[in-house]
């Protein structure tokens, strides 16, 4: 059932990525030192991600999946090992690895449009003209269907809309890798489904490489080319990697009875709840 790692066919290699892996996590260890005690959160993480791939990272709470995303983003330094993007070591955050934060992290004193232009102006100053940057900000707001609210402030729009703006802001940086940190976690089920569809559509249209943290099995199977399953911490590591060989575009209603979908879902559930139960659940039994 667990397929070996494969390069994904639908990704068009970008110029410059000759031979070397697009994104490589190479023997990553992360230990937090706090007040004299050290906690080894992640141990020996090895993963290769191809250009244009959609990879989900799933695991129980506290398994260090958010830490892993922060390591890739460069927000947290690795203890040992390396994150290599197109052969270059990542050691600081940057717009080529744009993050969509779990709680949207929009700046409340700026309008929706200004939140996006803050990113656009920073990344494309000197590359695009002022009017081009304006167009580009509007274009990205259009991608997430938020043009109608461009002059509103974050406090005046709903949680789902905020998350859309967060995605627009990240997309507007034209990132090599889009990092999603439980992007739909705080949303109600209907809004979540809408946003998932939007993200799938954008991924199909732009072909970005996406790494998404999630704890939602259905979401992972629906969106991903591959699901990376984490063992429980401390010293969490990659337990298994599951290929989801479902044709795109995927329609959530068609997948309900789809054989591959059901089997993939079962595999993830089995990993999470039979072989790597949350520590709390084990104690309860």
């Amino acid at each position: 059932m667990i397929a070996p790692l494969q390069t994904v066919s639908h990704s068009a290699p970008r110029p410059g990525s000759t031979g070397q892996p697009f994104l490589k996590l190479d023997g990553i260890d992360k230990t937090f030192m706090r007040g004299g005690t050290s906690t080894n959160v992640l141990k020996d993480i090895n993963l290769v991600i191809g250009n244009g791939e959609y990879v989900s990272i799933i695991g129980h709470s506290g398994c260090g999946k958010s830490t892993l995303l922060n390591l890739i983003a460069g927000l947290t330094p690795v203890t040992s090992g390396a994150v290599l993007l197109e052969g270059q070591e990542v050691n600081e955050p940057g717009p080529e690895r744009a993050v969509v934060f779990q709680n949207h992290s929009l700046l409340p004193w700026l309008t929706v449009y200004e939140n996006v232009t803050l990113a656009v102006d920073k990344v494309f100053r000197g590359i695009k003209s002022k009017s081009e940057r304006h167009e580009w900000a509007l274009h990205n707001l259009g991608l997430v269907n938020m043009l109608h609210a461009k002059d509103r402030r974050p406090s005046e729009i709903s949680g789902g809309m905020k998350q859309r703006v967060g995605i627009a802001r990240a997309l507007a940086m034209e990132p090599k890798v889009l990092l999603l940190d439980e992007p739909f976690g705080a949303l109600d089920a209907l809004t979540r489904a809408q946003l998932q569809d939007s993200v799938m559509e954008i991924h199909a249209r732009l072909g970005n490489t996406v790494i998404m943290i999630t704890h939602d099995v259905d979401e992972a199977v629906l969106l991903s080319d591959r699901i990376v399953m984490m063992t429980n911490g401390p010293s969490a590591t990659i337990g298994e990697v599951l290929d989801i060989k479902i044709e795109r575009p995927r329609k959530r209603l068609d997948l309900v009875d789809d054989h591959t979908y059901v089997r993939a879902r079962a595999a993830v559930l089995e990993f999470l709840y039979a072989r790597h139960k949350a520590p709390g659940l084990e104690a309860a039994e």
Binding site: L75, P93, P95, R97, V99, F101, S105, L118, V123
Partner: peptide, 8 residues
């Protein structure tokens, strides 16, 4: 974090 990702 936003500021860091944007390299302000």
């Amino acid at each position: 974090n936003v500021a860091q990702v944007l390299r302000l």
